[in-house]
């Protein structure tokens, strides 16, 4: 059983929900990422979505766009992101790590080379934002052979036929985009998400996480009962940007990670 499948099984048994922070590899600089990943785990993260920096992150709102730009200013690449996961794995074999990014860096590395290197580093899943199921067959086969889960997005506009098509290719979990918009948008509608999740769950047994628009403990706690886990990206990165960089590294990490602690507490309450 994959690390992700095992995680969701054990969470379900325990009646708990997955907390999934998203950060961009190398933001604000390459040296802090692995330490930040460990801090997020200490604060209660179950899965870490590690963003692969890309020059043209088309689905991101302004906060995450800037995170990509900061990482790219340090020339952080897909290779470096994979190396960060390998370093993280030296002391953490339990937390699931999913790489999330855009197709071109993976295409450039080559699907096979990527899958082999990512699997060797301990990557559990890949979410390629701009690769819908129609284009994903070759990559899906290669990921499957390497034991990496292929995670897909579902949107409020995804119809039932597509939900079934996507679920047939997906493994690990499905990532449900909670609103019509880009990451970090502010118009989360719990009623609409409830309906959407019901539609999705009627057509797949895969765990469903929800993201885009979750900002704090309250919004996480409101959504968590409806799904298998909640994803937080923009709000976490905003916390990081606003955290005082002049304090000692450990305190800085803790003040950033505290948002995950607050959300953990709110979800588990």
């Amino acid at each position: 059983m994959s690390r992700l499948a095992a995680l969701f099984t054990s969470l379900e048994t325990a009646g708990r929900k997955a907390l999934v922070p998203y950060i961009v590899a190398g933001d604000p600089q390459p040296g802090v990422t692995v330490g930040l990943m460990h801090e997020l785990v200490r604060q209660g993260a179950d899965i870490i979505e590690l963003g692969i920096p890309f020059s043209d992150p088309m689905a991101e709102g302004p906060v995450i766009q800037l995170a990509h730009e900061r990482a790219l200013a340090h020339k952080v690449s897909l290779s470096m992101a994979i190396a960060m996961v390998a370093e993280f794995r030296q002391t953490d074999s339990k937390t699931a790590v999913v790489l999330m990014g855009y197709a071109n860096p993976i295409e450039r590395m080559g699907y096979k080379v990527f899958a082999e290197r990512a699997a060797a580093a301990g990557v559990d899943g890949l979410l390629t934002v701009d690769m819908p199921p129609e284009e994903a067959h070759e990559l899906s086969e290669i990921l499957k052979a390497a034991g990496i889960d292929n995670i897909f997005l579902l949107a409020p506009t995804t119809d039932i036929a597509r939900i079934e098509k996507i679920a047939a290719l997906a493994s690990g979990y499905l990532y449900c985009v909670a609103l019509k918009g880009v990451t970090g948008a502010g118009h989360l509608d719990i009623g609409a998400v409830t309906e959407l999740l019901a539609k999705i769950k009627a057509h797949t047994n895969l765990p469903v996480t929800v993201g885009f628009g979750i900002k704090d403990g309250a919004s996480a706690a409101a959504l968590a009962p409806l799904c298998a886990g909640v994803v937080v990206g923009s709000a976490l990165i905003e916390r990081m940007v606003n955290a005082d960089r002049s304090q000692p590294e450990g305190e800085w990490l803790q003040s950033v990670g505290a948002l995950i602690g607050e959300m953990r507490e709110a979800i588990d309450a």
Binding site: A103, D130, E135, L153, T158, R162
Partner: peptide, 8 residues
């Protein structure tokens, strides 16, 4: 090659 949010 777009996000699922644009497919519809």
């Amino acid at each position: 090659f777009v996000s699922e949010t644009l497919i519809h």
